[in-house]
Amino acid sequence: MEHPNDKQPWTLARNAMGRLVWTGLDGVAHVGVVPVRAFPLGAPDDGLSLVSPDGHELVWIDRLDALPEPDRTLIADELAAREFVPVIERLVGVSTFSTPSTWTVETDRGATTFVLKAEEDIRRLNGSALLIASAHGIAFRIRDRFGLDRASRRLLERFL
Rank of each mutant, 00 (worst) to 15 (best):
M1K: 14
E2Y: 10
P4M: 07
D6H: 15
K7G: 13
W10A: 11
A13V: 12
R14M: 01
N15I: 04
M17T: 07
G18D: 08
G18E: 06
R19H: 15
R19N: 10
L20T: 01
L20P: 02
V21S: 00
W22K: 00
W22A: 08
W22T: 01
T23P: 14
L25W: 13
D26S: 14
D26N: 10
V28L: 12
V28Y: 13
A29I: 13
V31M: 04
V34W: 00
P35E: 00
V36T: 07
V36N: 14
R37T: 13
R37S: 05
A38P: 09
A38V: 14
A38H: 15
F39D: 15
G42C: 13
G42F: 13
P44C: 04
D45K: 05
G47C: 15
L50Q: 01
L50R: 06
V51M: 11
P53S: 11
P53R: 14
G55W: 05
E57C: 14
L58H: 09
L58T: 06
V59M: 08
V59C: 07
W60P: 05
D62S: 14
R63F: 15
L64H: 12
A66S: 15
A66C: 13
L67A: 08
P68G: 11
P68E: 09
E69G: 04
D71R: 14
D71E: 10
R72K: 10
I75K: 03
I75T: 01
E78D: 09
E78Y: 05
E78V: 00
A81N: 09
R82G: 04
E83H: 01
V85F: 02
V87N: 08
I88R: 05
I88V: 11
L91V: 08
V94D: 03
S95M: 00
S95D: 09
T96P: 06
F97T: 11
F97G: 12
F97W: 05
F97Q: 07
T99D: 11
P100R: 05
T102G: 03
T102H: 05
T107P: 02
R109I: 00
R109D: 07
G110H: 12
T112K: 13
T113E: 09
L116I: 06
K117Q: 14
K117N: 14
E119H: 10
I122L: 14
I122W: 02
I122A: 02
I122V: 10
R124E: 02
S128F: 12
L130F: 04
L130N: 06
I132A: 02
A133W: 04
S134E: 03
S134R: 00
H136D: 12
I138A: 05
I138P: 06
A139Q: 08
F140L: 01
R141S: 06
I142M: 06
D144V: 12
R145F: 01
F146N: 15
L148F: 02
L148Y: 07
D149S: 13
D149I: 03
D149F: 07
R150M: 10
R150D: 06
A151I: 11
S152I: 02
R154Y: 13
L155G: 05
L155S: 06
L155P: 01
L156K: 01
E157G: 12
E157W: 04
F159M: 11
F159R: 12
